[in-house]
Each structure stands twice: as structure tokens, then as C-alpha cells.
Design a protein around this nucleic acid. Structure first.
Lengths: 233, 233
DNA sequence: CGGCTGCTACGGCCACGGCCGTAGCGTCGC
DNA sequence: GCGACGCTACGGCCGTGGCCGTAGCAGCCG
């Protein structure tokens, strides 16, 4: 039963700075140990343990024990989407526009959002795919065109949720909270991210949600997708 | 700048039971006075005033003063979607499935979600439109077929976000937190809701998010869409 | 103009909850 | 088996914040 108190309970869990920091650290989709999360939140391990216990009990994080470590990851895509919704609201300046988004250049360039690429690279890819006619972006949904599907399949990017018998494939646009422009989430976004990682175009950086774009990645994204990322790095 | 603390601050605002109750009361998209919200939250007007001030400062609610009343409504669709994401997580039972959703029959039948219809009527409409071939529902997006667009236009339901030059229209499916099945959100969902209200098929009930389905509504939804709602009410 | 209402500002009370101390349990390595 | 390590359980301290008391201010009404 969804009561007001259950809504408040979930929100209150995220409402603590330490727990919010842990959840944000898990937003890249990886699993971290309690100790790493304690460091990320800036609290003692005992404190983190208590927090993680409550988060796990509520299903916000899932725990898998492995030896003497306990690996924590987000409780599912719903949790990730909920956090993204919160971040989008948190980034919206109430009165007047101010500089938004993280100052860290790498985080502005290509942060991961649970399973897909956001930031400048994310919106750049969305723009590029639209410019190439591979996808058609609407405000509420995106469509992969037949030629786009073929081209993406040639790159090893396949999505498995055809809306109508494989002819038309849809993708999920999402407003990026730092760039304020849509990027590709959903399965297509995840497939783009996976393919970039497989090809070595991007790689995960330790202890950060930011992706590092390799020189080959810069070239590939520029030549194949027409995305120019400015400075290298 | 989106910091961990801003994320936690927004979540903490929703994390208080009284504020959560107020926000939930505003989820039907209407504007309520501070006194009504105080009653909804079960707190004294002074307390509610303080809460509403903080919510307004953060942009979670918007205030319009009219005479000696102050009308509060949700701060935008982003806020509504954020709350829905929280509710979806809050409704997800952590260990094993239990009875979910409100016990109130009317709330299970046809609650409003900010601007569209959810609940049994919402998922029933989505199923019916799909069965009629008017929309094709995917996991990540829905498509309004040409014949569906024509049929809906004939009913006075028009959506104004064509993805590709008016030929294909997309809609946004959303997992219902009480029925656990997708219903139609986005502009199509809002248009369906508006049309139902205009036709007198449904009407808002005082002090509740639930919609009341009129006898004509029952007949119309059954005859036009093929949605059978069971008991009349 | 005076009484009434809707709302907000301030102050004090109180409790919930975060924090880390120490202590205890399970796991890995030697 | 012994020590080190990762993590969790419990207890006490303390600050933050929700709550309502009273008081003050703006807008309708007779």
C-alpha cells in the first residue's frame, strides 16, 4: 500500500547527505563496498554500515556478499530513475538561472547515468544521431529510423525493444540535468554506452561517474557520429 | 551546481511526512490553499505555512496569491514526475510482493497523476488503444498509428508533438504504481484526461485524487474504447 | 471603521536521528 | 590457530528540525 508515509520514508532516506552521497556514487551502475561508500560519503564505516542497512532494507540498494566484502549497487533502474528525477529538480534553479552542473570538466563531458552516457557527449550523440537521420527525437519519445537501425546495427549497436514487429524502434529521450538538453537513455542509450566501452572509445574512471574518452574515441565519435568534443581528455 | 547536498536537500523536503502529504495532495494538478493543505497534512496552519514557504523557496510548489488566499500548486511537471518516481519506488515491496496500492476503490479505479489518468481506467485505456491498433506500446515509448491518430482526432483528442512531420506521434508510457502495468502519460495521456473531463465522462472529486466515472463515462469508455470497469461508481 | 478570516513570523519545547565510541562476528592470509 | 581486515550491533552525545503557542499583518464584510 502506497501511503504518504511510505513516500516520505523513501524521500527521507535519500534526504540525508551521507546517504545521498552514497547513492550518487552508485549512480554509475557499479557495485561498491561499504568501505568505499563510507569514504565517498565522508563518514566512518560504522555510520555507513547503518545507512547501507537502511537503504538495503528499503530496496534502494542491493547487496551481494563476496568473501568478507559486501558489494552494494543500486536497487534497480527504478531507483536510478528516481534519483535522476530528484537531481533534475535539484538542478533547477528556483529564482534565476545560475551556472548549473558540476564544475569538473570530466563530469560535464561524459558522466554516466546508471547505464547510459549523459553530459556533453550524451547530448552530442543524441544531436548527431538526429542530424544523421538515424533517430527522430520528439519531446516524449524518439524513433530509430530504418536506415538508422541498419547503420547502428552495423556498428554493433542493437536494441531489442522494437515497438512494431522490428520495423520501428523507439528510444527514450531524457533531459540532461547538466546540459539541459535531451540525451538518449533507455536501451539505445545503454547500447551506445556498452558499445563505446567495448570499443575502447570510453572507459570508466576509478571513483568517478565520469567516462574518459580515449583518442580513438574522439576520432570515432567525430568521424562516425560527427560529434566534436572540443579539448581532448 | 548540482551537489550531493542539493540532491539531499530536495529529497529531505519531500522526506517530511507533512510535506509529503501536501505534495501528494497537489498531485492532481490543482491549486489548493494553505489551509486546505494544512488539513490534508494534519498539521496546524502555522506549521503548514512554514512547510509551504520552504517548498516554494525550493521551487517544489508555485504560489499565486488571490485575495487573502494563497493558492499552491506543484512547481511543474518535473516535480510531478519526480514524485511519481518516488512513489514507484515506495510502492515496490522490498522483499516479497504484497498487496499494493491504495485500498480505496475509487483511488484504484481512476486516480489522476498530475495531468493524466492512472489506475484501472488508465491502464485499461492503454490496453484498449493498443488492442484497437490506435497506439503501439513499447516498453520505452508508444506510437500513435495513423488510423489511431485519425480516430482520436475524431473524438476531439489531439496531441501536438508529432515526432516526424505529423505522420507519427509518440506518447509516453508509464508504469502505474498501483496496477504495475503501463498507462498513458505525456501529452496523449493529458489529452485523454482533458477530453474525459470535457465530455463529462469523468469528473474530479473534492479532496481526492480520484476521478468519478459517470454513467455516460462507463458507457462511452466501454463502447468507444472497449474498457469495462466492472462495478459502477 | 471594527470584527473576522487566511496567512505568516517568532520563540520555546521536545524528540527523532545522525554521529562515532567500543565491542563482537565472520572471512582471508600466514 | 592467530592476527588482520571488513563489516555490523549497541550506547551515549548532541544538533537539527518539526510542532504549536502567541503575536502580527493583509484582505473581505458588515
Amino acid at each position: 500500500m502506497v501511503t504518504t508515509s511510505s513516500l516520505a520514508a523513501v524521500a527521507a532516506l535519500v534526504g540525508d547527505p551521507a546517504r545521498a552521497a552514497m547513492l550518487q556514487a552508485l549512480m554509475d551502475g557499479r557495485a561498491l563496498t561499504a568501505g568505499e561508500l563510507a569514504a565517498a560519503a565522508g563518514v566512518a564505516p560504522q555510520t555507513a554500515s547503518g545507512h547501507l542497512g537502511r537503504l538495503a532494507e528499503a530496496g534502494l540498494v542491493a547487496v551481494t556478499r563476496q568473501g568478507r566484502h559486501r558489494y552494494h549497487r543500486l536497487g534497480g533502474e527504478r531507483v536510478a530513475r528516481m534519483l535522476e528525477g530528484l537531481m533534475l529538480v535539484a538542478s533547477a534553479p528556483a529564482p534565476v538561472s545560475q551556472r548549473t552542473g558540476p564544475r569538473d570538466e570530466a563530469l560535464r563531458l561524459a558522466p554516466t547515468c546508471y547505464d547510459h552516457i549523459a553530459g556533453r557527449l550524451g547530448v552530442g550523440l543524441a544531436d548527431a544521431l538526429a542530424a544523421r537521420g538515424w533517430v527522430v527525437m520528439g519531446e516524449e519519445a524518439g524513433l530509430v529510423t530504418p536506415e538508422g537501425g541498419a547503420a547502428l546495427a552495423g556498428l554493433g549497436i542493437v536494441v531489442d525493444d522494437p515497438v512494431r514487429g522490428g520495423r520501428v524502434q523507439a528510444c527514450r529521450p531524457r533531459l540532461d540535468w547538466s546540459e539541459r538538453r535531451p540525451h538518449l537513455a533507455g536501451r539505445l542509450g545503454a547500447a551506445l554506452c556498452r558499445q563505446g566501452l567495448d570499443q575502447g572509445w570510453v572507459r570508466r574512471r576509478e571513483g568517478s561517474r565520469a567516462l574518459a574518452v580515449s583518442p580513438e574515441g574522439h576520432r570515432a565519435y567525430r568521424e562516425i557520429f560527427g560529434v566534436s568534443l572540443g579539448v581532448a581528455g
